[in-house]
Every structure is written in structure tokens, then in C-alpha cells.
Design a protein around this nucleic acid. Structure first.
Length: 811
DNA sequence: GAGCACTGC
């Protein structure tokens, strides 16, 4: 019997609310967790026929003009006479010389006429002047003339990501500088150092969007569209730069990759590290290497300084300050040590790290806590959604943060159910789910404006916290939880668990309500609970398998891992485990130095284990390698098989996929799928739809495959001109044995009670239901992933023989 | 009987 539900949400800010909350619809569920019982009638969500989706699974992008143009509330300040006005267009003769195959992008029509670009830039300049950061331009320039390291806290909406590079690009220190660089034999060579600014981003879309925006603001074409382009970007599978590039946006991974070849970053005068607060493992490595660079002697740069700007949205700058100061202190002590006894020498001025805090432009967001602890946040969210809908004026969409697909779909169904019983005089409700596994076209619906008299209710996972901005949101409902992946060193297994978020994540979620107007954030937890949350997110470096990070460091000559400047030092146990794993796959010599195998693996865009598999396959011949590359490509993208959620489709899917399934397991099934997809020359998209295979995922697979093949050709693991179609039958035994070279530890054998137990550690493990071997009993299995969700699952599973496992483990 | 979010010459 549905009870009458009253709004429990008090107003925590002490501001008196205008009126007492009204009771909301009678039609709100009574029992806790009622949604859990409704899961049986899930509706289908298969990849729709749509040709407009971007290629290679590029994350969704809101169709908004730019990531930085914020609503303007203040009067423009008097003109500050900046010296970074848009550049005059480069002369036409220069452009005309390069007539051949520049990828025409959005600037194709302006290849020889930059006037429109300039006009646009001039118009944008008016907007730039109003950004909160704009008034700080001179201060920032001045500080960086004197110091090499700057920490910059810029709240959301401050404009830091687009403006900082433009403030700096015309500084005197930002020009290419002739330098003498010592060679190994003691002589020197002349080279030019600097001239470019790099700005790192954690995500690909962000790097590309920002580059596009800054190019517009600077009145220059983007990337490779013209040789005169001053702004470019570089992300995996897509690099767009020109000989004149001065400002380059890149992903952190890309900068790390560049550092493998150019450890002194000689192209750059400055590196701007953006979004440090997100603390992905790549950003930790980046700042570690950068600290070594700025506090060292810079011999590889011929002494030319590198400016480093570290930017964050949260004010936790103290640890970063200490981090860079420690680097300078160590350097100073070393110098003191060297010049010992020479006390008359003038002491160099102590280097300082400057800091700058820029207020953001956000509208106020009122926080409303739950007065009592919430047991079922799906149920609580349902009530709050209708409370908002009944009480609050239009317009104003609602963004609800949930933990995963399951809770999103459950709440979706509930909201739709109760919305049908609503008073028809009320505005309608449009429920839109949003999570990464959702097909592109369904994700795009979130960005379309709501029909008239309709309120959008977006039910999202963490994807909406950082990766995606939805406009129109004035109300945020935050369940206070998120799924977090945690690597457990001792068990060698990943867990995906629902955990409370951090304060800074809670603030981030709340901020999503104040981007366009004043908003409200309903927290489905008490204020007391909020106060007990961690300040910041746990850095990824404490939560993941470190073997790839360590191999990266070793490949850059960091032999003593313990002395590496970690922003947060991982526990010794985790480091040791990673070292052991690298030793196991022969990536390291017994001395701890990197081996030739290790060096080869480090250059591959793969985890060390997958890299090892690739090298092992190469030893089994080119045919085997070609096949293993196909499989590895599948393993390094999202699931290639679509979920078949509806009953009718399920049977059709089984039939359609039957010719792809291989009894050897998931690996050979993936191979069959890639081969069939690749040999489909007529219409791959239709083929994918027929077989319920994700076309988006397969496009990424083809990108990775192409990249890996080309790298293997370069490394002479594959013959140069292997243009011919690969048609020989696969050799399952060789393929699986190659995989065992990397995954020998990821094996389990069937025990008499019918369950599988790991060969190393004797732990119980179940085959994941997504596997073709689900429910099958074989002598032994090898798997790519060992994950704990509700129980321990092996994912990416193939049948193997125990004697192969023995051989692989014996080395 | 199941899928937080990112990323890589």
C-alpha cells in the first residue's frame, strides 16, 4: 500500500525556505528497495541504426559551442590593454606554398583567407575579457618571468584552460632558444630548445575541444588544416599539428609517450598540467617527471629553463607546493655538497614556487541535506525528483548522480511509472539515462533541449561528474556514492565496489547545478555524513596495478623506483608486487634494470602483460602475431558484444552470433569476430548490427589493430609490406600458448566439486556470465581479468590444458 | 546470469 510521502529535506543553509514543502504524489512506493524486484522486465537498449555517431568510440560531446564561454553576469571591465590580442593572419604566400593534402577540417574554406577567423577572434576577445582569469594576466606573466613553477587554483568557469596558454605564448622565454646540448662523448651539439607550450588534459575530447576553442580565440586555423596554424592537439589516433604549432593540447598519456623519445621535452618552453585534482595515474607520473626536470640541471635542454604551471580546480595546493619545494631543496643540498669548503661563493637566490588563486564563475547553489540517513538511495531519489518537480518552477532540469547502470535503469522505470499518474496540468517529465555503456545515439538525447512544458530528468553515473556537461541543469540530486575500482595487490584482483564519494567529488557534483543559473543540490545523505567524507578522491596510483607505471619509469632510466618523486607514494607492497610481475614476464633483468623485452613492451600502448603476449606471439611466427594482435585489440577496448537485454532479441542474437562463437573460448571468438568484421567490405555497420556486435567498439578495435600492426612492422616483428589479406586458419594452440606467456598466473583448474580454483593461490573463481565458456566445465581456464563485484569472476576466458600452464609457469 | 569513469608514438 503506497504511503503518503512528505518531503523530508530540510534547508541546511538556515535560509528560511519560502514555504513548507508540499506532500508529493501519492503514488510513491512504500517498500524499501522495491526497485530491486523489478529488474526482470528490463527493456531493450540495443545499438540503434544511426550513421551520425562519431568514430572510434569518441566520448560523447555536448553540442555546445565551447567549454568555456560562461554566462556573463558582470559589467565588462575597462579595457586592460592586453598584449595578447589576436595575432595578425599569416601572409598568404606562406600558406599557398603548402597546397597538398592538408586534412580539411572546419577551416577548409579559410585556407587562404584568414579574415573570417580574425573577425571571429575579435568577437571572442570581448568574451575573453570578461573571464575571471583575464584580469590576472599580467600578474601571472610577471610571476612566471621570475619563477619556473606556478601553482594555479582556478575554480570552474575561471577560464584557466583556454587563457593561460594565450597569456604565455608571446613571452620572451617562450621563444625557440639556441642551445648547446652535451652529447654522450663529451662534445656538444647545437640545437634549438623551446618555443611551444604543452597543455595536458586527462581526456581526449577535452584536449580536442580546448584546442579548437583556443584556435578560434587566437584567430588561427586548427592543427594540420594549415601550415600556419599555431594551435594543435595530440591524442591517441589523432594528432593535428603544424610546423607553426606553438600551443599544443595533449592527453597526459601522450606527453608521457613523447617523453620516452625526448626526455628533456626540448620542443617546449612550458608545460601546463591541467586538472591535477583528478589525480589519474598519468598525471602523477607527469608531475613526477616534471619535478625532476625543473629541479635538475637541465643539461639535456642546454640549460634552457622549462616553465611548469600546475592547475587544479580544488584548493588542495599545499601538498603540491611541498612536492615541488622538496625538489628544489634536494637540488640545493646537492649543490651545497658539491661546493663544500667554498663558502665564499654567493648563494643562489632560493627558488620559490608561486601560487595564484582565481575565483570561478559559478552561480550560487543551495545545499539541502537529508535530515536522516538514507537506506535506499534509489527510493530516496525518486521522492526528491518529484518533490522538485512539484515545487520548483520551470525551466530547470534535474541531474541525478547514481552508481551504475543497474540503479540508473531501476530509477528510470520508477520515475516513468509515477510520472504517468501525475496531474496532467503539471509539466511533463522526460527521463534520460546516461552511462558510458549506453550507445552513442542514446547518450546524445541528453543534450537535446526538452520539448515544451517538459522537465528533463537525467539519471547519470559518474560520467556526468567530469566527462560530460549537460546544459539546463538547475537541480542536482547526489546519492553520495560511486563505484570505484580498486586493485588488491595481495590477491591480484580488481574489485568494483560502491563507496562513498569524497568531499571534492560532492562539491563537483553540486557545481553541476550552478552553471547557468542559481541552483539547488539535494544530497541524499546527512550533513554529518558529509563531514566524515574524505577530502579528495583517492589517487589512482593507490588503487591500481602499478606494473605499467613502473615499466614506464624504468624505460625512462629511473632505476631507483624508491627515489622517484611520487606525489603520493604507493605502499611498498604494491611496488614490490609490480616489480615481481615485471620480472615474471622478463621485462626486467634480475638486477632490476629494464631488459630489451621490457624496452620493447614499454613502447607499446598496452599493459605489460599484453605487451608480453604480443612479443611471445611474434616468436610463434607472423601468422600467429597477426591473430594475437586482433585479439589484443579487442581486449583493449570496451566490450565488443552488445548486451541482449530483451528476450525476443536474445534468441536472434544467439543465432546471429553462432558462427562467431568458438568452443576454445573468448579469445578465439574475438578473433573470429574481428576477422569477419574486417573482411566485410560492403557494410560493416549493418554486419555489426546483424551480429549484435558494437560497431563503435569495432571501430576502436580496428584503430588499435592498425596501430599495433604498424608498430610491429616498425619493430620488424612483421614483414614490411603485409598488405595481403590474412587468410590462413588460426592456430588455437599457438595463440593460447602465447597468451599464457603473459597470463600464466591467471589460470584456474576445475576441482571435483565443479568449481574453478586459481592455480596460484587456490582461490575460488567463477566464469563471468558474459563469457562463451559460461557454465562450461573444462580442465583448466586462462583469463585476462579477475574481478570482484558480487563475487569473484574471471573475464576473457579460454580453455587451456594443465600441461601448457605448467610449461608457462616454469618459464 | 552481468557491465564506475578515463587513458596510450
Amino acid at each position: 500500500m503506497p504511503e503518503k510521502v512528505h518531503t523530508h529535506f530540510g534547508d541546511s543553509d538556515g535560509e528560511s525556505s519560502k514555504q513548507a514543502p508540499k506532500p508529493i504524489s501519492d503514488a510513491v512506493p512504500a517498500e524499501d528497495g522495491a526497485w530491486k524486484k523489478r529488474r526482470s522486465k528490463k527493456r531493450k537498449r540495443d545499438e540503434p541504426a544511426d550513421n551520425s555517431q562519431p568514430r572510434n568510440g569518441e566520448p560523447i560531446q555536448a553540442p555546445k559551442p565551447s567549454p568555456v564561454v560562461e554566462p556573463v553576469t558582470q559589467e565588462p571591465k575597462p579595457d586592460t590593454k592586453p598584449d595578447d590580442t589576436p595575432q595578425p593572419p599569416p601572409n598568404k604566400t606562406q600558406v599557398a606554398k603548402h597546397k597538398n593534402n592538408f586534412k580539411p577540417k572546419s577551416f577548409s574554406d579559410t585556407k587562404t583567407n584568414f579574415a573570417p577567423l580574425r573577425e571571429k577572434a575579435n568577437a571572442l576577445y570581448e568574451l575573453r575579457k570578461k573571464l575571471p582569469i583575464f584580469g590576472h594576466a599580467d600578474e601571472i606573466r610577471q610571476k612566471l618571468r621570475e619563477q619556473d613553477v606556478m601553482l594555479l587554483v582556478g575554480e570552474t568557469g575561471s577560464g584557466k584552460s583556454t587563457q593561460i596558454p594565450q597569456f604565455l605564448v608571446n613571452e620572451f622565454w617562450c621563444r625557440p632558444t639556441p642551445a648547446q646540448i652535451p652529447k654522450e662523448d663529451g662534445s656538444t651539439r647545437s640545437a634549438s630548445v623551446g618555443g611551444c607550450i604543452a597543455i595536458t588534459q586527462p581526456r581526449r575530447v577535452a584536449a580536442i575541444t580546448l584546442a579548437r576553442r583556443v584556435a578560434e580565440e587566437m584567430g588561427t586555423p586548427l592543427g594540420s588544416s594549415s601550415p600556419a596554424s599555431k594551435v594543435g592537439y595530440s591524442v591517441r589516433f589523432d594528432t593535428s599539428v603544424s610546423p607553426s604549432t606553438r600551443v599544443k593540447f595533449l592527453t597526459e598519456g601522450m606527453l608521457l609517450q613523447e617523453m620516452l623519445h625526448d626526455p628533456w621535452l626540448t620542443k617546449y618552453s612550458a608545460v601546463v598540467v591541467d586538472e591535477v585534482h583528478e589525480r589519474g595515474i598519468n598525471v602523477d607520473l607527469t608531475v613526477g617527471f616534471l619535478r625532476n626536470l625543473v629541479s635538475g640541471k637541465k643539461e639535456g635542454r642546454g640549460g634552457v629553463p622549462l616553465k611548469v604551471v600546475v592547475m587544479s580546480a580544488t584548493a588542495d595546493m599545499e601538498s603540491l607546493m611541498g612536492f615541488f619545494q622538496e625538489g628544489f631543496k634536494i637540488q640545493e643540498e646537492e649543490q651545497k655538497h658539491l661546493s663544500n669548503g667554498n663558502s665564499g661563493e654567493k648563494k643562489e637566490t632560493v627558488k620559490e614556487i608561486t601560487a595564484c588563486h582565481i575565483k570561478g564563475r559559478q552561480f550560487p547553489v543551495k545545499t539541502i541535506y537529508s535530515p536522516a540517513p538514507v537506506h535506499d538511495f534509489v527510493d530516496a531519489a525518486l521522492k526528491v525528483i518529484f518533490q522538485i518537480h512539484y515545487k520548483e518552477p520551470m525551466p530547470g532540469d534535474i541531474l541525478v548522480f547514481l552508481t551504475g547502470q543497474e540503479t540508473v535503469e531501476a530509477l528510470e522505470q520508477l520515475v516513468n511509472e509515477y510520472a504517468t499518474g501525475m496531474d496532467p496540468s503539471l509539466p511533463r517529465i522526460l527521463v534520460l539515462p546516461l552511462f558510458a555503456a549506453l550507445p552513442q545515439a542514446a547518450q546524445q538525447r541528453v543534450f537535446q533541449p526538452a520539448p515544451p512544458r517538459t522537465r528533463k530528468v537525467i539519471l547519470a553515473t559518474n560520467i556526468a561528474e567530469t566527462s560530460v556537461t549537460v546544459s539546463g541543469v538547475r537541480y542536482v540530486v547526489d546519492c553520495g556514492k560511486a563505484k570505484v575500482k580498486q586493485f588488491r595487490t595481495r590477491l591480484g584482483l580488481d574489485s568494483l565496489l560502491v563507496k562513498p564519494i569524497s568531499k571534492s567529488a560532492a562539491i563537483q557534483r553540486k557545481g553541476r547545478a550552478g552553471r547557468e543559473a542559481a541552483g539547488q543540490c539535494f544530497r541524499l545523505y546527512t550533513e554529518k555524513d558529509y563531514l566524515t567524507l574524505d577530502e579528495t578522491n583517492t589517487p589512482e596510483i593507490l588503487r591500481c596495478d602499478l606494473s605499467q607505471a613502473l615499466l614506464n619509469m624504468k624505460a625512462r632510466g629511473v632505476d631507483d623506483i624508491v627515489r622517484f618523486p611520487f606525489l603520493t607514494r604507493p605502499p611498498r607492497e604494491a611496488l614490490e608486487k609490480a616489480l615481481l610481475q615485471l620480472l615474471n614476464i622478463d621485462a626486467l633483468q634480475d638486477s632490476g634494470k629494464i631488459s630489451d623485452v621490457g624496452l620493447q613492451i614499454a613502447k607499446l600502448p598496452l599493459t605489460p602483460t599484453l605487451g608480453r603476449v604480443l612479443l611471445a606471439a611474434a616468436e610463434n611466427g607472423a601468422d600467429c602475431l597477426i591473430d594475437v594482435i586482433d585479439i589484443i585489440s579487442c581486449l583493449s577496448v570496451e566490450n565488443i558484444f552488445l548486451n541482449t537485454t530483451s528476450e525476443e532479441k536474445k534468441e536472434a542474437a544467439e543465432t546471429a552470433r553462432r558462427d562467431l562463437f568458438r568452443r576454445e573460448g573468448d579469445h578465439l571468438t574475438m578473433l573470429a569476430t574481428v576477422r569477419a568484421y574486417a573482411s566485410e567490405n560492403a557494410d560493416r555497420k549493418a554486419w555489426a548490427e546483424r551480429h549484435l556486435v558494437s560497431h563503435r567498439a569495432m571501430q576502436s578495435v580496428m584503430d588499435v589493430r592498425k596501430q599495433l600492426r604498424s608498430q610491429c612492422r616498425q619493430a620488424k616483428l612483421l614483414p614490411r609490406d603485409d598488405g595481403r589479406d590474412h587468410t590462413s586458419d588460426p592456430a588455437p594452440v599457438l595463440i593460447l600458448q602465447s597468451f599464457l606467456c603473459g597470463f600464466g598466473n591467471n589460470t584456474a583448474r576445475l576441482v571435483p566439486d565443479g568449481s574453478y580454483r586459481t592455480v596460484v593461490g587456490n582461490q575460488i573463481v567463477a566464469i563471468h556470465p558474459s563469457s562463451v565458456l559460461y557454465g562450461k566445465k573444462v580442465e583448466a581456464i586462462m583469463y585476462n581479468e579477475f574481478v570482484f563485484t558480487n563475487r569473484s569472476y574471471a573475464r576473457g576466458v579460454s580453455a587451456v590444458q594443465m600441461d601448457w600452464v605448467g610449461e608457462a609457469l616454469a618459464g
